[in-house]
């Protein structure tokens, strides 16, 4: 049995319809009409202990809804969820002891008190043994570089500092799995980097299972080895990152830069000029052609001052999947 088992999971929201006009709103006081919204439909997957899975999809795809069902906040409309043998929404308190959850849009910290106070609260809430608490507190304070601000009131902290603290408190009780719903939302490049690096280390050093939703594909590349892609509540892809890149492989791009007069472009097999700017060309290399040969050819033909390879980013691949639909 896998650690997380999700079978034919569905979630339908019933959204109360607003009626127009005075008469309509009087009527709706007595009888409401509902519109159904299928946020998650027939999703199944399994996750083994220690895996780090990226759960991605466009806005409104159903990512947060899935995380809420996994963590026990929401009851599925149909289908089953098992996490470590427990049905999360049935045994909430039992489940709570084994999971850590962070919703990036929502802070769990005491606004007026320092982070260390929320740390102490969680020690009591989760009944964490003293030595485990001390060890984890020191470990995460160091990992997330929180020494400087742990004694500062939360209202004075930056978004990135609050996010680090929120992730740290979700981990104090040594959960077996960590659910992260958009943990890097609104952070700058440097903070994102520190966060990704820390999350990756937690996954590798502690062997913690991680499920991460994000809109930043760099998060996925840095942290996850596996990717689940959903759209409109349905699963579109489930597999390793490298398989994803292979299956949805796109053409490679090569950029040539000239510090002198631009040469004249000659058509070549497998190469095409995608973009010609003032002093550079972007050249598309057909996926069948070997990038190495293309580079040699281009060097010989045009002798550019500089040459850059551009690897296809998952972001672009995902984009092309949705554009291609």
């Amino acid at each position: 049995m896998s650690f997380i088992e999700v079978e034919d999971l569905c979630k339908t929201y019933f959204i109360a319809q607003r009626s127009v006009g005075v008469w309509g709103s009087i009527k709706s006081l007595f009888r409401r009409t509902y519109r159904e919204k299928k946020a998650v439909s027939d999703i199944s997957f399994r996750v083994e202990r220690g895996e780090a899975v990226g759960y991605i999809g466009p806005n409104g795809a159903g990512k947060s809804t899935t995380i809420k069902m996994l963590s026990g906040v929401l009851v599925p409309t149909s289908g089953t969820v098992h996490v470590g043998g427990v049905v999360p929404y049935k045994e909430r308190k039992e489940n709570a002891q084994h999971i850590g959850v962070v919703f990036g849009q929502r802070s769990q910290l005491y606004w007026d008190l320092p982070v260390s106070d929320t740390f102490e609260l969680y020690e009591k809430l989760y009944d964490i043994p003293r030595e485990v608490y001390m060890r984890n507190r020191d470990y995460y304070t160091e990992l997330f570089q929180m020494e400087d601000f742990i004694d500062q009131p939360v209202r004075q902290l930056s978004l990135g500092q609050k996010m680090k603290a929120n992730i740290a408190i979700a981990l104090l009780h040594d959960p077996e799995v960590l659910y992260l719903d958009e943990p890097t939302i609104g952070l700058d490049v440097m903070s994102k980097k520190v966060l990704r690096e820390s999350i990756r280390r937690i996954n590798q050093e502690k062997g913690m299972t991680i499920i991460l939703t994000t809109h930043d594909m760099d998060d996925i590349e840095a942290v996850c080895s596996r990717l689940i892609l959903i759209d409109q509540g349905r699963k579109l892809f489930d597999g390793t990152l490298s398989r994803f890149k292979e299956e949805h492989h796109r053409d490679n791009m090569i950029k040539l830069e000239f510090k002198r007069e631009m040469p004249e472009w000659k058509e070549q097999d497998g190469l095409s000029l995608a973009e010609a700017a003032d002093s550079c060309w972007r050249i598309r290399v057909k996926r069948e052609a070997a990038p190495r040969d293309a580079v040699i050819t281009l060097l010989n033909l045009y002798n550019p001052d500089n040459i850059y390879m551009e690897e296809p980013k998952i972001e672009e691949i995902v984009e092309s999947i949705f554009v291609g639909q």
Binding site: K68, S71, G72, V73, R92, K93, N95, A96, Q97, I99, V101, F103, R106, Q108, L125, Y126, D127
Partner: peptide, 13 residues
């Protein structure tokens, strides 16, 4: 209103 009430039901409290 901000939905944080749901976090309480997945804490052991």
């Amino acid at each position: 209103i901000d939905g944080s009430v749901s976090m309480h039901i997945i804490r052991p409290v």
